[in-house]
Design a protein around this nucleic acid. Sequence first.
DNA 1: TTCTTTGCAAATCGTTTGCAGCATG
DNA 2: CATGCTGCAAACGATTTGCAAAGAA
Lengths: 162, 162
Amino acid sequence: MRTVEELAESVRAQGGKVTSQRVLIWQALRNDKTHPTAEALYERLRAVLPRLSLTTLYTVLNELVEWGDVRRFDTGDGHIHFDPDTSGHAELICLRCHSVIDVPDDEYHAQPAPAPQEIAGYSILMRTEQYYGFCPACRAALATLKEEHGERLTSDTRSIAR
Amino acid sequence: MRTVEELAESVRAQGGKVTSQRVLIWQALRNDKTHPTAEALYERLRAVLPRLSLTTLYTVLNELVEWGDVRRFDTGDGHIHFDPDTSGHAELICLRCHSVIDVPDDEYHAQPAPAPQEIAGYSILMRTEQYYGFCPACRAALATLKEEHGERLTSDTRSIAR
DNA sequence: TTCTTTGCAAATCGTTTGCAGCATG
DNA sequence: CATGCTGCAAACGATTTGCAAAGAA
């Protein structure tokens, strides 16, 4: 994600307006490594912008996504998550509890080359990598379940997504 | 994604039932490289299963996701997409038209090593990589817009996501 | 027969839209 | 002071749930 200054300049250059809402949302997101949902960001922003509407938040987030400054993605929990880190890092996503964390640096030596600028005619702005599996807590929970009664691990999947 | 036989065996082993709905959904998805939405799959499946309900389709898809056989992801178009390819391939996603294609083999020589079985205590079942940018058509469209009137490329972003 | 799965209809809830007032450049 | 942005309330629509009937094992 670009700096607040770069974003402001870019908006002005296109005839847009640099409002306090935009600036505060940009600031809130820029150093956020928690992969927040819109709702989570909203709660945090209300502390500084009590009049902020969800509408505006979504508008600004969608702008950032279309500009290639922020990535939106789905962890399976029924909420859209946003991530300002466009540096090509890797993420770990749990298939059971839907948590997301960045792969710790020391666990990931095989850092691949940065994204090429063009692939198959596409201009590339951003790259990510995801690993899906079970987090330590869910692994333990699943193991316990398996022990207790060797049968069905996943009972009713009709309520997985949210 | 496992074969239909493996899935059937796995379901039976857990006390589940191998219904025609499950089998037909599995078959429909297994060789699908189009990254379909639930709705798209539903339309295609109605040809062979006219009584199929969306409810059942979502149930079965969610099972597959939780089992690590299928990945669900968001392209930004407001629909969840599903992909049975768990082999760690790379995808190209357009930030403007939200299309997705797999990176063509000949465009992607730097095939990274297969996913490790464990990272930071997580057991890993699946890996993917995504490149975000603009597809050739959207690049051309954006270039034309820029030519015509040098100003705002993205007018109103309030209707991006769907 | 037993217990899981299916399908229908209704509900849910995250996200988007219409529009009037407001603030930026 | 012109235009783009914001906030409210209402709408939307994809996905999920409750429950009774159907069908594997």
